[in-house]
């Protein structure tokens, strides 16, 4: 999903930096507070970051006959919220930009926005709404993480469309062209990502369910209900 190095002209790449930097700063603030108050959550933070590392390294073949990779950000977003997810995504994006020529430094702001902010915000909102509505926990996790994946690619398409409007049809026509590549390729990958993330959550609950209560991801009663269902 990464916009490649140099493929966003000014003023667009500066604009996306301007939007992403405050979120990253807020994320650093949140992270610092968490490190001081709840140090026992750090292993789970490492797992969430590592999950993004693994999933974004897997380029998977899709129905369109091209390859793309899932983002893995939905898990971090549900556990730690969008701002911390933005930091974790930025670390992965930097690794790929510097060592793999995948994405880039000028496009880092735009890529952090689509993968680290837009996707996680969608995941976070869907998760909160789904749990309020009393949907099944694992189904909500599936929905939230799959939609985060799709949202990331739609936003990437929008970022490219804004920078490269078509001569006839403008931004909308070029958005359709980019989304046709990205979103369609992503659909099966997003379903896979959602399903596997739901499974990971099952294991997190099994080995360390109390952490989720501490993070306000689920309530005490909700946790007990899920544990009864799965054991």
């Amino acid at each position: 999903m990464h916009i490649m190095e140099g493929f966003l002209p000014g003023p667009w790449w500066q604009l996306w930096f301007a939007i992403s930097i405050p979120v990253i700063l807020y994320g650093i603030h949140k992270l610092n507070r968490m490190m001081e108050e709840k140090r026992d959550l750090l292993p789970l933070l490492a797992v969430a970051g590592a999950y993004i590392f693994v999933l974004s390294s897997l380029k998977l073949p899709s129905v369109t006959g091209s390859c793309s990779h899932p983002t893995g950000t939905g898990m971090a977003a549900i556990l730690f919220g969008p701002a911390i997810s933005a930091i974790l995504s930025m670390i992965v994006l930097l690794y790929q930009a510097l060592f793999l020529a995948h994405g880039g430094l000028t496009t880092l702001g735009a890529n952090v926005f689509s993968m680290g902010i837009a996707g996680p915000v969608i995941a976070y909102l869907i998760y909160k709404i789904g749990m309020k509505a009393g949907l099944n926990f694992y189904f909500t996790v599936f929905l939230a993480t799959a939609m985060a994946d799709i949202a990331t690619y739609l936003v990437t398409s929008l970022e490219l469309a804004l920078a490269f409007p078509a001569q006839s049809g403008g931004v909308i026509a070029s958005f359709e062209a980019f989304a046709a590549i990205f979103a369609l390729t992503q659909l099966p990958l997003a379903i896979m990502e959602g399903a596997i993330t739901a499974l990971i959550f099952k294991y997190v609950i099994k080995v360390k369910g109390d952490v989720l209560v501490k993070l306000d991801v689920i309530g005490e009663a909700g946790l007990r209900k899920i544990q009864e269902l799965t054991t």
């Binding site: 190095e5 091209s66 390859c67 793309s68």
Partner: peptide
């Protein structure tokens, strides 16, 4: 890669005139 295909679309949209800035 889908990224590479997007590069193709950019080329089409700009008639191949776009030069990456970096």
């Amino acid at each position: 890669g889908a990224d590479g295909q997007a590069e193709g679309v950019i080329e089409e949209l700009t008639d191949g005139t776009y030069e990456p800035i970096a």
